[in-house]
Design a protein around this nucleic acid. Structure first.
Length: 905
RNA sequence: GAGGCUUUAGCUCAGCUGGUUUAGAGCGCUUGCUUGACAGGCAAGAGGUCAGCAGUUCAAAUCUGCUAAGCCUCACCA
């Protein structure tokens, strides 16, 4: 078969993927083998593939394929996430572009649009994963809102409610005014922001009752205006909230504000009179030491309001505009009000000054332009104390291993300071909370029941006192949906239907899963909560290893973003470099927990490597065989490569077991390119005679094919397509055979002496080649070589002869340096090449002198150690012995170099 | 503000339990290579005060402390 000299991935990738699918090689069913399970971190159902996914999913595929080729029953379960906030936002946007407002639709109408959108865009990302070669069991593709998963979510909600772990409560929560829903504390991201600190005058309202004068002359001036009226000054970053002020607070230990104690002040512009309260919460040093208290719009103020029994005035509408309760600026957005009120305060002489100020402002994780508002409302919460208690031990005790381990601390800190999880969202796209409110009179406290179905809810309701005759249509189901993560946290369990059908064959077999590959930014959102759910519902961990990837950045270290345009299109890369090339390139630069700086040169390297493999195959494929004895160099090469392969295999296994994926992949890369191609194949490659390739002996040929076979297997998990293509052509295969289901060889014993002897030979060869280059001697001109027999592995002569084009190697007691020539050392072995008339004596002397200097310096260091009595007395015997060996080696090297110098005179 | 991590060749990173020939890899760079696998290649090279300072030790890139720069996580200071 005539093969082109360039590998063309487009001719193989789709073909083999279709073959794998047709033969159901990705499909897994429970059986007697050891299971290996990975569940995909479900991407947003309407998302598209980005570089982060590429890395993450290549890793998962690599691990899955490798496990499969180690004889395990490997299963990688794919699926998508309904991503309630993100998807709902997209649907709302699309509707608004069609002139439809969400609030004009019923819930059912809106959900129809949302499902249509999901069907339209859903699953694109899963199709893209196929291009990458992902060996997911597509028959098991799941969705967080499909029937099984939805049922699981509702069951868990009901169960946790009955266990008393879910409660409904009035709390200060984080409100996203754009999405118009609450968020959990984890969904708020804080950003440093340059803002202003406004100093506002709050006049003392009961001046008639002779307030205690501010102490000190300075105070007199500061706190009294030209009309003699006293005032306090409050520093705030949020002047737009003054309409909600219900107190001013000072620290009781603050002498400079003592005079305000017990008085009342007037809120500027608003004119409302509010009390001055005292609380040690107030920082005396900050601003003026006077704090305005707005219980409805600040977490701390809310706490103050509770302890001091203050009125709460909510001045915002859900969309962030000012409500009727504000009295002023009604209907304006809060951010506009801030600018406007600053001017108005200024004009009314109520603004003392404005300072630049840097503070942290919380933004919505999903709507990064929207500042989150603290807001008081009634929501559903999951009590976390219990879950923290069950989720911490498995990680601390090492039942679950984090790679890298540094995340254990982060995990621990979070769990030890955990807050209750707000799980309700004011969204429609999601799992609707299975709570039903019963009809009560206006103003009475709400009464509700929690049940899986309306029918069960009705039965439950009728057991409530006073509701014995309630009817189904009287029940009003809670409008809210659940936080998306409230379904994702069940993923490793719900994928195997472990909630709805506990103890079923699949959950028993596949759970716990083995490895989880995910990004560290969802450690709290997802990883921690899966551990909680796993422990709660399976009484066991959901996975044994968590591999945290880094963030994919561009080569300048910037995050990839649409705005910067620095995010390559993954499918474009696959088309340009081949999926195998992209996979290899990315795998070479990942390491657990470290960000990767992506450079297209990386995948170019991967493409080049594909080509290297391809051409190595072309070489081997073109060989002919005849009956003849195996040559000596060939025999050594075969034995050596067998050892080298096993040594590397051992290293690769070790690297994989420690999740040092890039090291493992690099080791395989070097094994193939450097050891197999550059050394092994070059040694056994037959020459040409009379314009025809010399046939090769059977033993060498068969060894080579078997090495190629092993190498392809080792490479397959990283580069599935090209390895399948070549494996299929390496020997005749039957339909239905695949490299995917072959076994990666086990490590066999190897000969370390042979490996080190061969290393010496390669160094000697490199030295001869270097010499040729320096002296301008053609590689084709044969040279003769002398070698001093001490420490020289004579079995390497045939290899050296062939690779360095040396016509004869004389192994001698002492090299004959009486003729002109060049000597060199490999380790302690001395080589000499006679080169009559080919060397420049002066240049040679300079070089040898430099060499002597280097060794003398080294020797001085060694001797300094050895002459140090404390070293000889304290260091372990073998370390001292080693130093002695270094000393004698260096001494003999120097001696031989000096001798050589003599002969050059 | 509290904890944690990082700093080794031009770039990205190894260097694991202090000791193995006075530091390794990949990429990049330099030089030389056109007939038999591959220029997406082959061969040979250059390149380092291991961030700085002080300490512990017979011995430090490796352990400790301080300093500097960068990054991450958490935290209610208006």
């Amino acid at each position: 078969m005539e093969l082109p000299n360039k590998y063309d991935p487009s001719l193989t990738e789709d073909k083999w993927y279709a073959y794998w699918i047709k033969n159901k090689f990705f499909h897994s069913e429970p059986d007697g083998r050891e299971p290996y399970t990975i569940v995909i971190p479900p991407p947003n159902v309407t998302g598209v593939l980005h570089m982060g996914h590429m890395m993450n999913n290549t890793l998962q595929d690599l691990l899955t394929r490798r496990a499969r080729m180690m004889g395990k029953n490997a299963l990688w379960v794919p699926g998508t996430d309904h991503a309630s906030i993100a998807t709902e936002a997209k649907v709302v946007n699309r509707l608004s572009s069609q002139g439809i407002r969400k609030r004009d639709l019923t819930r059912e109408q809106f959900l129809e649009h949302a499902w249509a959108w999901t069907e339209e865009h859903g699953g694109i990302i899963l199709k893209q994963l196929r291009r990458l070669g992902a060996s997911c069991d597509w028959d098991r593709t799941a969705f967080t809102m499909d029937e099984t998963r939805s049922e699981s979510v509702l069951k868990v909600f009901v169960d946790l409610y009955r266990k008393g772990l879910i409660y409904r409560g009035l709390r200060m929560v984080n409100w996203d005014p754009k999405a118009q829903t609450v968020l959990s504390t984890e969904e708020v991201v804080y950003r440093d922001e340059k803002s202003k600190l406004y100093y506002l005058r709050y006049y003392v309202a009961d001046a008639g009752s002779n307030p205690v004068k501010p102490t000190g002359e300075e105070g007199e001036v500061l706190h009294r205006d030209e009309n003699g009226r006293y005032y306090a000054v409050v520093a705030t970053t949020r002047p737009e909230t003054i309409m909600g002020d219900t107190a001013m607070c000072i620290n009781p230990k603050d002498p400079k504000n003592r005079w305000l104690s017990g008085h009342k002040v007037t809120v500027p512009l608003v004119g409302r009179t509010i009390p001055v309260i005292e609380d040690r919460y107030v920082d005396v040093e900050f601003g003026t030491g006077c704090l305005k208290v707005t219980p409805a719009h600040d977490v701390n103020d809310y706490a103050l309001g509770k302890t001091h029994n203050l009125e709460t005035i909510d001045i915002f509408n859900p969309d962030g505009t000012l409500s009727e309760a504000a009295g002023l600026y009604v209907g304006m957005d809060r951010m506009d009000v801030r600018k406007r009120i600053a001017k108005d305060l200024e004009n009314s002489g109520l603004m003392e000054k404005v300072e630049d100020y840097e503070n942290k402002v919380g933004y919505s994780e999903r709507n990064p332009d929207t500042a989150v508002e603290p807001r008081l409302c009634k929501q559903w919460f999951l009590s976390m104390k219990h879950f923290a208690d069950i989720a911490l031990p498995p990680v601390l005790e090492g039942k679950i291993k984090f790679h890298p381990a540094k995340y254990v601390n982060i995990y621990r800190t979070w769990l030890e300071n955990i807050q209750d999880w707000c799980i309700s969202r004011q969204l429609w796209w999601g799992h609707r909370i299975p709570a039903y409110f019963l009809p009560v009179e206006e103003g009475r406290e709400e009464v509700f029941v929690v049940a899986l179905t309306p029918q069960e809810a009705l039965e439950e309701a009728r057991r409530q006192k006073g509701f014995e005759n309630v009817k189904l249509e009287d029940l009003r189901r809670d409008e809210d949906a659940l936080d998306t993560w409230f379904s994702s946290w069940l993923w490793p369990v719900s994928l195997f239907n472990g909630i709805n059908d506990p103890g079923n064959r699949e959950i028993e077999y596949y759970y716990p899963t083995c490895d989880l590959v995910t990004a560290p930014d969802i450690i709290f959102f997802w990883v921690a909560r899966m551990i909680m759910a796993g422990e709660e519902y399976m009484k066991d961990v959901p996975f044994r290893n968590v591999y945290f990837t880094g963030i994919v950045r561009d080569k300048l270290g910037r995050k990839m973003s649409k705005q910067l345009g620095n995010s390559p299109d993954p499918i474009g890369l696959i088309e340009k470099y081949g999926a195998d090339g992209v996979r290899l390139g990315i795998m070479l630069c990942t390491s657990a927990g470290n960000d990767i700086l992506f450079d297209e040169a990386q995948v170019e390297l991967g493409r080049n490597f594909s080509n290297k493999i391809w051409n190595a195959f072309r070489l081997v494929q073109g060989w002919t065989v005849e009956e003849k004895p195996q040559g000596e160099a060939d025999r050594i090469a075969v034995e050596w490569f067998r050892s080298e392969f096993n040594r590397t295999l051992e290293q690769v296994n070790e690297d994989f077991s420690r999740f040092r994926i890039n090291d493992a992949v690099m080791a395989i890369y070097k094994l193939f390119w450097d050891d197999f191609c550059a050394w092994y194949l070059e040694i056994v490659k037959p020459g040409f005679a009379d314009g025809r390739q010399i046939p090769m002996d059977k033993a060498t040929y068969e060894a080579t094919v078997s090495f190629f076979d092993s190498l392809l297997k080792l490479l397959h998990p990283v580069m599935p397509f090209i390895t399948e293509e070549l494996w299929q052509n390496l020997e005749p295969r039957k339909d239905g055979e695949t490299i995917m289901l072959e076994r990666i060889p086990d490590v066999e014993k190897y000969d370390e002496k042979l490996i080190s002897d061969f290393a010496l030979a390669t160094e000697a060869i490199a030295s001869v080649r270097a010499l040729r280059q320096q002296k301008n001697i053609s590689p084709k001109e044969p040279l003769r070589l002398q070698v001093r027999k001490d420490g020289y592995p004579q079995n390497m002569s045939s290899v050296i002869s062939k690779m360095a084009n040396v016509s004869s190697i004389d192994v001698v007691d002492e090299v004959d340096t009486s003729v002109a020539g060049q000597s060199f050392l490999v380790g302690t072995v001395q080589f000499f090449i006679p080169l009559e008339g080919m060397i420049d004596v002066e240049e040679e002397r300079t070089k040898i002198l430099a060499e002597i200097q280097r060794y003398e310096g080294f020797l001085r260091g060694v001797e300094a150690k050895l002459s140090n009595e404390r070293f000889v007395a304290n260091a372990p015997a073998q370390v001292v012995e080693l130093e002695r060996k270094k000393q004698s080696d260096a001494t003999s090297k120097i001696a031989s170099l000096k001798e050589r110098l003599e002969t050059l005179k």
